[in-house]
Amino acid sequence: MFMAATAALLVTIALALARAFAGPSVYDRVLAVNSIGTKTVLLIAALGFLAGRPDFLDISLLYALINFVGTIAVLRFIRQSRAQEGN
């Protein structure tokens, strides 16, 4: 079961990667990065159970935090640069 979940997560990451490569708008990429981050969190959790080491859950929690910070940073940067272009 965890194996199927891992395979599905890898396929989802591939799809999100395709969106990150293709773009075209910044928001497509932000969304792709964020969803890849979420999928990485899930992937590590699934891998932890697959490898019989559920303590990997702690690491995936850290990833969730970092992913959040990264997304906020990108969005703040975009808002700031939009404001500067408006001047």
């Binding site: 990451i13 990667l17 990150a20 910044v26 990429r29 990065v33 890849i36 990833y63 990108v74």
Partner: peptide, 15 residues
């Protein structure tokens, strides 16, 4: 900007 975001993805995948 897209390259910087892709490098972020690179870091996550590497991790």
């Amino acid at each position: 900007l897209a390259s910087a975001m892709l490098l972020g993805i690179y870091g996550l995948l590497m991790a």
